[in-house]
């Protein structure tokens, strides 16, 4: 038995891959749920109900999907260029921190839309800087960005801890380690009244469309793909490798940081060291499930959000630990990788 490269990747196969992966994941996880003594069908039904059963749960699921879309786009953009950005989590936090730090009073003199834009751009710049460094280190010295970006996550998280315990600590928070809140006028307006769903959703969808346009239609996108697929040929054709990769890094880091900024300006209003349930890492899963397609990211983010929101409800209803959400997400990552393997390779005797 051996793997053999397929001559061509068929587009329908690529489209079916994530659905097949998710189906297999649900079957595999059904075994775990059964081991917890619950009928898997009941559990999945509860999960679906928890995620979409009411107006509140729908808005909650979408609220959860917004940062996942942005971190998913961040990962997808970088992976397209074969830049392995595992630092989405750190970039998310640095974006959140900058938005909260500046959003308290620094931009108070500006008109609201402009102030929000400035906050987001400042966050994105910080996130971009956080990834451009590792990208340059790889280009200059061959230092593996998987290691540097991954380790930076912990450094950033400790730094956020330092800030929310120190200079940015909210004196009104009864000693809780959380930052001063963003000025209430700067919060993103709600999309649906009496819910946490905010206009960040629209923003994420627009960003996804723009990223698609950038990748599929622009010179930058064409060069990025060429550089990712075959750097030597790209260099021979005059594609500036360093400049291209640095721009990809800035975009990717910026998108992950934007997720953090949107989260602070939207539902939470302030920064804590526990505000992200792993949005940065989940973004990698989202990007893979989407086969790195920006529009697919939107759908994949909603799927992952469904699992997370639904798992809590399922846990309450059936007693299956909500950790099953993490398991489902991780397993779906592995099954998707397997599915992608089979779109490019076939098994031969």
């Amino acid at each position: 038995m051996r793997f053999e490269r397929r001559e061509d990747v068929s587009l329908p196969a690529l489209f079916i891959a994530p659905f097949a992966a998710i189906a297999v994941t649900l079957v595999l996880c059904a075994g775990l749920i059964a081991m917890a003594g619950v009928n898997p069908l009941t559990a999945y039904a509860e999960m679906l109900k928890g995620a979409f059963g009411s107006r509140l749960s729908v808005t909650e699921t979408l609220t959860r999907a917004v940062p996942l879309m942005l971190t998913g786009l961040a990962a997808a953009v970088a992976f397209r260029a074969r830049l392995w950005n595992i630092g989405g989590e750190g970039q998310f936090y640095i974006g959140a921190l900058v938005a909260a730090g500046l959003g308290h009073d620094l931009v108070s003199g500006l008109p609201v839309p402009l102030a929000i834009a400035v906050l987001m751009l400042a966050s994105m710049a910080a996130g971009a800087a956080l990834l451009v460094g590792p990208a340059l280190m790889r280009l200059r010295f061959g230092i593996d960005e998987v290691v540097t970006t991954l380790l930076l996550n912990f450094i950033v998280l400790l730094f956020v801890g330092l800030m929310v315990e120190g200079p940015l600590k909210d004196p009104m928070a009864f000693g809780w380690p959380q930052s001063v809140p963003v000025a209430s006028g700067l919060r993103l307006p709600d999309l649906v009244p009496r819910s946490r769903l905010h206009v960040g959703l629209i923003l994420a969808l627009v960003v996804a469309a723009l990223v698609w346009l950038l990748q599929a239609r622009t010179v930058f996108g064409a060069r990025t793909r060429a550089a990712g697929l075959n750097p030597r040929a790209a260099a021979f054709a005059g594609v500036p490798l360093t400049a291209t990769l640095v721009r990809v890094a800035a975009l990717s880091g910026g998108l992950a940081a934007l997720a953090g900024a949107v989260e602070v300006l939207g539902p939470t209003g302030y920064v804590t060291t526990t505000m992200s349930p792993g949005f940065g890492y989940a973004g990698i899963v989202v990007a893979m499930l989407a086969a790195l397609h920006p529009m697919g990211v939107v759908a994949a983010a909603i799927f992952v959000a469904t699992v997370f929101v639904g798992a809590d409800a399922m846990s309450r209803a059936t007693g299956v630990p909500s950790f099953i959400a993490d398991v489902i997400m991780s397993v779906s990552f592995l099954t998707m990788l397997t599915a992608l393997l089979f779109t490019t390779y076939r098994l031969r005797r």
Binding site: R223, A226, N230
Partner: peptide
């Protein structure tokens, strides 16, 4: 093979890769 073309891109993309400017 290694430097002339990007195998996974379409023919048209390779054809204009060096002239995108």
């Amino acid at each position: 093979h290694a430097e002339g073309t990007v195998g996974d891109l379409a023919v048209w993309e390779n054809a204009v890769l060096e002239r995108l400017h």
